[in-house]
Amino acid sequence: MEVLTTEMGSTGKAGTNKYLTFSLDQEEYGLDILKVKEIIGLMEITKVPRMPDFVRGVINLRGRIIPVIELRRKFGMPEREDTRETCIVVVDLDGVNMGVVVDRVSEVLDLVPEDIEETPEFGASLNAEFITGMGKSGERVIMLLDIGKVLLGEELASLARLEGPGESPGDEA
């Protein structure tokens, strides 16, 4: 538990953490609210060539250009048409802003450490490394994401590879 709270960043006064919950398909995820800068509706996204497919492109956030990540693709989930509920959660990772496309934003949830359990072993499942814990709220189970790890860790590594000589992810049209 100790590790968990430090990983999740600053804790609320009584040990509670606030999480912004959102869903991808039937799964519910939680983001440390302190890392959430804002939530914006889906807007036109400019594609950026030569980027891995989970980079959906860039948008204009009040004059700043920020990259937008398609979380479904990142997690290897099937594609889905955007709906009215699809929106972009803008996260702030130490001053670096990035957008994350999610199916639907649900609510802000208070979780006390007792409500959070360690991530069970998923075996070789890929998503587990981004999950810092499982939050319980009534019947619901919420996967708490380490969004910094999701966006920056693997991301940068794979993008850096792109700059090497043997790149080219895209197929010839």
Binding site: V48, R50, M51, V55, V58, I65, P67, L93, M98, L159
Partner: peptide, 15 residues
């Protein structure tokens, strides 16, 4: 404008 710090500099794209 820069393409956001989250992305590395892309060859061929100035911004």
């Amino acid at each position: 404008k820069p393409l956001g710090e989250g992305l590395p500099r892309l060859p061929g794209v100035a911004g």
